[in-house]
Simulated assay, not measured.
Amino acid sequence: MLRDATEDDVNLMLSWRNQEVNRQVSKTSHVIGADEHRRWWSAVRTDPTRRVLSYLRDGVPAGVVTFFDLRLDGPRTGSWGFYLDADGLAERGETLPAWLEVMREAVDHAFDVLTLDRLAGEVLAHNTVVRQMNRRFRFVEGEGRQEIHDGREITVIPISLDRANRRRR
């Protein structure tokens, strides 16, 4: 289940975002400090072009879904990303089911709640498992581009999914 993130979620979000597995598949791979995270939270919670949602698995907070660059007039578009409590889900043997569930719920939210026409995102080229999962959900990859973040060169691949091409349950 997805719900609006609250102040009570802030510390959990930071701890999950700083898990090694999440940092290595993110454009910014440094450990995020409390001040940096607070500045981010202060900015996103009042930004009309952003939404931050908590993902609950069996009623327990287990991840974060962010929507950003929302354009809700004219062609309705937006971008998204997510990360999970990778360590906690792995301990419980729930990583794959949670991953499938959060992607389904995020895509449904984008098209059914935000009523987007197109959902975009990015994936790092070396993240082959996520790229494969994105294809399963019918996201289309664009041409990769080289970027430098946190002193490392990465290849970022844009992805997109149009409303008409989404996989229905």
Rank of each mutant, 00 (worst) to 15 (best):
Y55R: 07
W41R: 04
L53K: 10
R39L: 05
D117W: 04
V60L: 03
V140R: 15
T6S: 11
T66S: 11
F137K: 04
V65W: 10
F139E: 05
Y83S: 07
S29P: 00
V130C: 09
A43L: 01
E94L: 13
N18T: 06
R136Q: 09
L70V: 10
L56E: 12
I148N: 15
S79H: 14
V44E: 00
V107H: 12
W99E: 14
W41F: 02
R57F: 02
E91I: 03
D35A: 07
M13R: 13
F82C: 09
S26A: 14
R57G: 05
F82T: 08
G81M: 12
D69C: 06
V25G: 01
G151W: 07
A90D: 08
V31K: 08
R136L: 06
L116I: 11
V60S: 04
N22K: 04
V123D: 11
Q132V: 04
R145Y: 05
N127S: 09
R168V: 12
L114R: 14
V102R: 01
A110M: 08
R145E: 14
R152K: 09
L56Q: 08
S15M: 10
R71H: 15
H126M: 06
V31D: 02
H37I: 00
L12V: 01
W41H: 04
L114M: 09
L114K: 13
T6D: 13
Q132E: 15
E36Y: 00
T46D: 08
V64P: 03
T49E: 10
T6A: 10
V113P: 09
G33M: 00
V130Y: 07
R76N: 13
T49P: 01
A125E: 15
A164V: 14
E36T: 00
V52P: 00
L124Q: 12
D4I: 11
W40I: 00
L56R: 06
Q146W: 09
R166Y: 09
R45C: 07
E143T: 15
R23F: 05
V140N: 07
D85F: 00
H126E: 14
